[in-house]
């Protein structure tokens, strides 16, 4: 697809002798929400790490915004507009909420614009504003996930990568998080979200891919995937 803002073409990656990704191709179009589903150890996080250059692809190409990025360093890739909300949030727990948000904007120079983006995050998550000087490590789980997303947003990404945003959250909070993701998307940010919680992810996504031990085994629109007989949260890992 030519109008894809982010595409992986025949990408493989391995950790030493262990092959984690085997010839996967994924397209994310501008303005879409695309999800990548897979059970534990399927290679979802590795996919995101490879996109960001934290794990090197040993074959294939990654194109972002019309240019190949698989050879660039992580900071270069981030500065082009790709940011990740890492698995398990991984906040800077000893820093304040504000400092975490500023770290997200660390690559950027314009103070006024950064302030504007921080305000935007606060309008998205008013609870964070109340806790602006609190240590990130003392926030509740839901607030931490909000802050992790906020931290990624202050980098002004064109495409936001999310690694299992539902992990470890109560169902009600999961719903809130996904609503927020939808809202961020409606404000113009393309979303690529990795999930085990297939139902939740598909309910907001346009399209989805299913990853199984490093290979893409299914791809379709979200509506079709939801109907797919083999696909259910419980059996995602045992799919043929």
């Amino acid at each position: 697809m030519s109008d894809a803002i982010l595409s992986l073409r025949h990408v493989s990656a391995s950790y030493g002798p262990v092959r984690a990704l085997d010839d996967i191709s994924i397209d994310v179009n501008e303005g879409e929400i695309v999800c990548l589903l897979g059970s534990n150890a399927a290679g979802k996080s590795t996919t995101l790490r490879t996109i960001l250059g934290m794990t090197r692809a040993n074959a294939g190409e990654i194109v972002f915004d019309g240019e190949r990025i698989e050879g660039l360093t992580t900071p270069e890739i981030v500065s082009r507009g790709l940011t990740m909300v890492p698995e398990n949030r991984r906040l800077f727990g000893k820093m304040s909420v504000k400092e975490n948000l500023e770290i997200g904007a660390n690559l950027r120079d314009d103070k006024a614009e950064i302030q504007e983006d921080i305000e935007r995050v606060f309008s998205l998550f008013p609870r964070l504003k109340e806790r602006i000087r609190q240590r990130a490590g003392t926030l509740s789980g839901g607030e931490q996930q909000m802050l992790a997303i906020g931290r990624a947003l202050t980098a002004r990404p064109k495409v936001l990568l999310l690694d299992e945003p539902s992990m470890g959250l109560a169902p009600i909070l999961v719903e809130q998080v996904f609503e927020t993701i939808q809202e961020i998307n409606s404000q113009g940010t393309t979303i690529f979200v990795v999930e085990q919680n297939a139902h939740m992810a598909l309910s907001i996504a346009d399209r989805g891919y299913v990853l199984q031990t490093g290979s893409i085994v299914l791809e379709d629109t979200a509506a079709n995937l939801l109907e797919h007989p083999k696909l259910s949260d419980a059996y995602l890992g045992e799919m043929e």
Binding site: T74, V78, F92, K94, I103
Partner: peptide, 23 residues
């Protein structure tokens, strides 16, 4: 400063700091 914050982030979690674009 920006530099000081980047150092603090690095000190706390080098991987995530890198993922946030800190060189």
């Amino acid at each position: 400063s920006r530099v000081g914050r980047a150092w603090a982030a690095m000190r706390e979690d080098e991987d995530v700091a890198e993922a946030m674009g800190i060189s």
